[in-house]
Amino acid sequence: MRKNYIAIILMSIFTLILVAPFNTNAEEKSVATINEGNLTYAPINTIVSQMGGQVKRDEANMNTTITINDKTIKIDDNFGFAEVNGQYVPYETKDIQGFKIPIFKKPVIKDGIAYVPVEFLKSSVGLKLDVKDGQVAFNTVGGGNSTTTVATVSVPSSSSSQSSSKSSSSSSTGVVEVNRPVSNPSTPSSGSSNNSGGTTKPSNPAPQQQTIYTGSEVKQKLYSLGFINKGSGLVLNKYGVANDTSSDYIHYNVLSGNYDMNLTILASTPEVDQKIRTILSWILPTKGNQLYSILDNASLKSQTITLDGRKISIDVEQTFIGVDFGPIVK
């Protein structure tokens, strides 16, 4: 009887030894790619989280920080370069007269998911990817059930579909999101729609606060004031055209890094003044009028101030007033 037990135990151990090498939980997966220009783009968040990397989404600042293969990569939705271990790296280069030239090219945001060139993921991030038939294949760790935890700070966004899609994509990769609901009586909150979709797990909801808009969200709202696209930014033009700089009233650009956005006032009328007041009230929930009073001063000088937690750099030139707004620091 005892010999039988020993035999069974030995066989079990032997079986485990045989099977163990094949039971790594590694699984080949693939996700759809998209093509833009002559480049193939892949969804970096989905791939990295399924490969066992960490993905942290900062919705307020519209950027994603990814950690994999001892590399930390910061992807900003509105910025033309990735930050890899503190160094700015272009997603794409082009060849001019035998020199490699970095191109300013933002990641492609499709359905709320950031896509970056596959070549960038291979060469700069060091991922092993295989592109074929509109798919990018890769080996997952843990069968795709990564232990990635993502802390997402959600703020109301005018592009609600984008935020909503981000949540659903994250949840499909085992991501846990922590939303910070922010009150917005006049605008439906995309953060709420995320929660209603059942894809997020709100925890420790913050108390009701003033609406805080990011540079990109302000940009979306500016269309309602008559702004039109001009380059990567927007312009409010006397005649509603983008190619008549001499008739421009206001330029608006979304920035990254130390500043969220730039507002450059080139000319004004009472009607434009009212629009400036509105814009400032979006950027500074409680101090918009105060900043308007500062700007509406004939003896205004270049200065840096802090209002509503934003660092504001005012640059007074002969032909324009430039105002850079930093992110809100709490």
Partner: peptide, 14 residues
């Protein structure tokens, strides 16, 4: 350390 192109540019010639 803040030196990076924050706005789009195009390299026309070398």
């Amino acid at each position: 350390e803040e030196s990076v192109a924050k706005q789009e540019y195009e390299v026309n010639n070398l």
